[in-house]
Amino acid sequence: MKRSRNVALVLLGAAAFGVAGCVEEKTEAAAFESKESCLAEASPGGWFSAADCETAFAEAQVLHEETAPRYESRELCEQEHGVDACADQASSGGGGGFFMPMLMGYMIGQALGGGGRVMSQPVVRSAGGGFATPDGSTKIGALNGGGQIRASAFAKAPVTKGLAPMTKAQVQSRGGFGSSAAARSAGG
């Protein structure tokens, strides 16, 4: 009556988690610093063509304009994207200007299932080094390379165009928990 049917639980380390979670679908992807570097890699036998490079680049430019983060100050933008990675966007319709990370290149991805149009996503610089998609959710170390990444990296980021630029308090950040711990471990 006091008994447990518990079996010997194996502690696997972090690998134990996420087993029951979603295993994300992956797709073939490549990142380029320019349309030209994409064109140089395109081949009739490959998964993307020269025409794919053209349409994906045009799409990335539009997406960057629509979804790249907007900051109220250069300082804030550079904090997130690094020094000299941001451009002043003087407002054309009156009101204040704002700062956006510059388009540094784009990622193209094979459509899930193999057929159909390639997917496109602009990339901007990331403060810690490397590059990131507009919402920061996918980070890539270097441009002009390729490999398998999760397909959700190509999901369109929330539209920022027309919204007020982010203040310091709104900027996505990390590391806001854990600093008050007095002890080496938090339990007891």
Binding site: A16, V171, Q172
Partner: peptide, 16 residues
Amino acid sequence: GLGAHYTDLDKIGITA
């Protein structure tokens, strides 16, 4: 029957 995911506490971030 729940999904379990691990994160280091200091890796928790906040969205806009």
